[in-house]
Design a protein around this nucleic acid. Sequence first.
DNA 1: CGTTTGGTTGAAATGTGTCAAACTTTGTGG
DNA 2: CCACAAAGTTTGACACATTTCAACCAAACG
Lengths: 245, 245
Amino acid sequence: MHHSQSHPFIAKLESIFTLAGEERQALIDLPMQVQGVRADQDIVREGDCPSRCCLLLEGFACRYSTTHNGTRQILSFHIPGEMPDLQSIHLKTMDHSLQTITPCKVGFITHETVRDLCRRYPRIGSALWRETLIDGAIFREWMINIGRREAYARACHLLCEMMTRMRAVGLAEDHTCELPITQGELGDALGITVVHANRVLQEIRKDKLISLTKKTLTVLDWEGLKRAGEFEPTYLHLESDRPAA
Amino acid sequence: MHHSQSHPFIAKLESIFTLAGEERQALIDLPMQVQGVRADQDIVREGDCPSRCCLLLEGFACRYSTTHNGTRQILSFHIPGEMPDLQSIHLKTMDHSLQTITPCKVGFITHETVRDLCRRYPRIGSALWRETLIDGAIFREWMINIGRREAYARACHLLCEMMTRMRAVGLAEDHTCELPITQGELGDALGITVVHANRVLQEIRKDKLISLTKKTLTVLDWEGLKRAGEFEPTYLHLESDRPAA
DNA sequence: CGTTTGGTTGAAATGTGTCAAACTTTGTGG
DNA sequence: CCACAAAGTTTGACACATTTCAACCAAACG
């Protein structure tokens, strides 16, 4: 909990396995260029071939892509401690963009540094690979959500996911957490229009499942919200769910 | 081209980088239990905690998940040379199922064997990580497809993708390849009903973009199909698109 | 304090789902 | 190899979730 304040990345890895002293030190010494970024700024853009990847230290970000007719699909939301473009160490060209949602503090780490870290500390390498696999699991779940659930359930599912992920890194008190996304962004993540996102949110509020004001989400009826969104947290592969070795 | 017949996995890796003699030998010697599987059989199921992963040697397979009301979302299609459940080496519990579409020949390789392979031959390890990242890129693209394009465009996009992937491993002649999926499966992949999948397919055929009979797909107008599906193959990260080192 | 951004509302248009039936192809056991 | 069952495809009419468009309101902000 303390570490999530001081260094969210270490906290994240330590939620997976216990770092050896040497590993922990390597992470602390990790050379990175820390930088503040205003809200709604692209960090990397589709088509770029970045030579470093970014560690989100503070703030919210999202990955997205835009279709020909100008509509946008948000592919994922990101919270502190995550490396949203880690895949770029093995995939040269960005096939989507990464953007801040709130003002953020990000650390840029060169690909060479990351590769070196993975080589020297294979357990960290495995953990990073694992992170990208969980990313993939979340993408799959979003596909199910968008493809097979109707808007009301989709929204509930997403709210459950965000609450669960925030709680997992100590950023939720009880059933309350920050959720600084607009209804437009919510719609873009769920594959619906702003207008419909608005109507669906109103319904969820009317059904007393959540309250969402001033960028703060409070889940009033966790079981009800889970049920409505068919939320099963297995796909997030949290805590205890790890291979033996 | 020859290798895709003899050992599609080696062919796949060789499309990414040139294997050293030792690496190649290690792959040939890879202990695996080869097994035939009938069509429409689950290979691993949601909730399982497999101790090995499977290499698809012959046939088509798909990953899928089922919602509460019984509808199914297909998450990906798989062709020979792929390891559809490679993620299980780092994610203990399966969050979706893997099923054959046609009769298949699969090779089961224990997680320990794969981990050992990655440890001994880091370049192979990187290549496997990379494969799972491309998986993720395809999931993202499907999200965009399902979330932001209408059914007609979705279908075109998927057909472009399958043709491109088949061609990449030498399984397409010209603009013709095998595509042994039913309209039900197509619908489940696109997030629409069978009925609608059928109507959309008819339209695409009427527009002379494709012919699809007897499990064989022929693209009659590649540029037209690409345009209709807004297909940009970048996200497949084929051939030349690799990091320098 | 005005301007921008985000939220809310209503009515009409439309893409896709649902249901139910018929038709066609494929596969299989006798 | 036929006969029959099962699986897959096609069709029509109707229902409904979601989009579109257009306006208005509220909150945030410099």
